[in-house]
C-alpha cells in the first residue's frame, strides 16, 4: 500500500510537472508579481523609506528581500489553487477516482508540483533581488538553513492552497481564495519593522505566521538576532501543513457529485 502510494504519487507528480512546463504563463505570473513589488519598493519608495542614496537603496533591497520571497510564496499558492481546481473540474479526476490507485496521490502530485514551482519562483525572484542590490552577508550554512525553512513553509502553504483549490466551486473562486494572504507580508515584518506600527496592527503583525518566517530568514541571510523566531516558524509550518492536509483529505473524500 505504502509503495503504491509512493509510485502513484511519483506518476502524478510527473503528470503535474508536464502541465507546469506546458502552461508556463502560471510561472510567469508568480514571478512577475513579486518582482513588480520589488522594483516598486526599491526604485520608487526605496529612496524615501530607506537611507538616502545608492547605498540606501541596496540596503533597503536587502531588508525587504525576505518579504518579497514571502510574496512569491503567496503568488505560487494562487497558481497551485488554480491548478487543483481546474483539475478537479475536469473529467480525468473522475477517471482516477474509479481506478485502483492510492487516493492520496491525486493530492500529493499537486503538492509536489506546488513546492517545486514555489522553489523555482523563489530562486528566480532572489536572482532579480541580487541584481537590485540585495546582498547576503552570512555563510553557506545559513543560506542552506534559510532555504530549508522556506521550503518547509512553502510545503505548508502548498497544502493550504490544495485545500483551497478543493474547497472552491469554480476555477475563478480558486484563483481568488489565496489572495487575502498577499496582505500578510505587508502586515508583518516584510517591508518595515513591526515596532513602527500602531499597537493593534503591531500585535497582529507579531503573531501571524509570516513574521517569524521572514524574521528568521532575514536573520540567517543578513545577520542579526533570530531568537525564538525559528522555532515559532517551524511550529507554524507544521501546524498549517497538518491542518491543511486533514482539511484537503476531508474535502477530497466527499462525493464529487452532489446536490
Amino acid at each position: 500500500m505504502m509503495t503504491s502510494a509512493l509510485a502513484d504519487s511519483a506518476t502524478m507528480l510527473r503528470r503535474n510537472l508536464k502541465h507546469m512546463l506546458r502552461y508556463p504563463s502560471m510561472i510567469a505570473f508568480m514571478i512577475l508579481m513579486p518582482v513588480g513589488f520589488l522594483l516598486l519598493f526599491v526604485y520608487i519608495l526605496g529612496g524615501t523609506v530607506g537611507p538616502a542614496g545608492h547605498a540606501g537603496r541596496a540596503a533597503y533591497a536587502t531588508f525587504i528581500t525576505p518579504g518579497i520571497i514571502a510574496l512569491t510564496m503567496v503568488a505560487a499558492s494562487t497558481a497551485t489553487a488554480v491548478s487543483v481546481a481546474s483539475d478537479m473540474t475536469g473529467g480525468i479526476i473522475a477517471r482516477f477516482r474509479t481506478m485502483p490507485i492510492a487516493r492520496v496521490s491525486m493530492l500529493t502530485g499537486h503538492v509536489g508540483r506546488g513546492v517545486i514551482q514555489t522553489v523555482l519562483g523563489m530562486v528566480a525572484v532572489t536572482a532579480v533581488a541580487l541584481l537590485t542590490g540585495f546582498r547576503a552577508t552570512t555563510s553557506a550554512a545559513s543560506w542552506l538553513a534559510a532555504a530549508g525553512l522556506l521550503i518547509l513553509f512553502a510545503f505548508a502553504l502548498t497544502w493550504l492552497s490544495v485545500a483551497l483549490g478543493l474547497a472552491a466551486k469554480t476555477v475563478e473562486a480558486a484563483s481568488n481564495a489565496p489572495t487575502p494572504l498577499i496582505i500578510l507580508p505587508f502586515l508583518g515584518s516584510g517591508f518595515v519593522l513591526t515596532q513602527s506600527m500602531p499597537t493593534a496592527i503591531r500585535w497582529f503583525a507579531e503573531y501571524q505566521p509570516f513574521t517569524p518566517v521572514i524574521n528568521t530568514v532575514r536573520g540567517l541571510l543578513i545577520g542579526g538576532p533570530i531568537g525564538n523566531n525559528a522555532v515559532i516558524a517551524i511550529a507554524w509550518s507544521a501546524a498549517i501543513a497538518l491542518g491543511s492536509y486533514l482539511w484537503a483529505r476531508k474535502l477530497f473524500s466527499r462525493d464529487p457529485v452532489r446536490a
Binding site: 506518476t11 506546458r22 481506478m99
Partner: peptide, 25 residues
Amino acid sequence: VTGQYSAVDELLTGAENLMLMADLY
C-alpha cells in the same frame, strides 16, 4: 469507465495519456 464527459488529459499527448494509465496500473 468511459464517462459522458471526456476523461482525458488535455495537456498531455495521446501516447502520454495511455502511458499515464499504464503507470498507474
